[in-house]
Amino acid sequence: MHIPDGFLNSGVSIATGVVAAGAVGYGLYKAREELDEKSVPMLALCAAFVFAAQMLNFPVAGGTSGHFLGGILAAVLLGPWLGSLVIALVLLVQCLGFADGGLTALGANVFNMAVIGTILSYYFFYGIKALLPKSRTAFLAATGAVAWLSVMLASGAAAVELAVSGTTPLSVTLPAMLGVHAIIGVGEAVITVLVVGTVLAVRPDLVKTYGYQPPVPRFEEAEVNQ
């Protein structure tokens, strides 16, 4: 859910906008550094992928459905900065193309989903991953836990912004937002784990944060019979 125009005051819009612009700027810098001229097609395809994946509804319970958000998926697959850039691009296209999310709330939406929901959550993921043993199961468990957490953090940030703007009282919005997103987050976690698990099984080299080392074939020194 994207915050429309009119819900935030100018202070919140500007403050979140500055942080969001900084994150996007640094993401673009990292993209130039890591991918060089390859960044245009690769980032565009990854952003288009998140955009398309968000159109796919998954069942929650008894016929209700939610859709996938993809912040942690992007961070796990591409790293935190490129992942957040991809999410910011999706938000930008949704804002300009669909009027989904307000123009003056764009900074806040990018802040919530690309900075809190992707970069910050990625560092939680990094911390949890460091504590757990190094195995595929632990990696997936950390992914799932943080996917849930990222949805909660992003929705909590939105509730705080609305409260600081004087739109809604925090005591009502925060529990309501966290309550709804605690359920949405479970779906997000399940889907993220399934997707990362499948990609790990098929192309482990594409999961950037997994640190996959391709097995190097050993060559014994040839015996030469004289």
Partner: peptide
């Protein structure tokens, strides 16, 4: 209808990612 049937969606999104990449 239920979340435990979401495995198919996970595989679809993974396939979409691999094809996109």
């Amino acid at each position: 209808k239920w979340l435990w049937q979401a495995k198919v969606i996970g595989h679809m999104i993974a396939a979409l990612f691999l094809r996109s990449y």
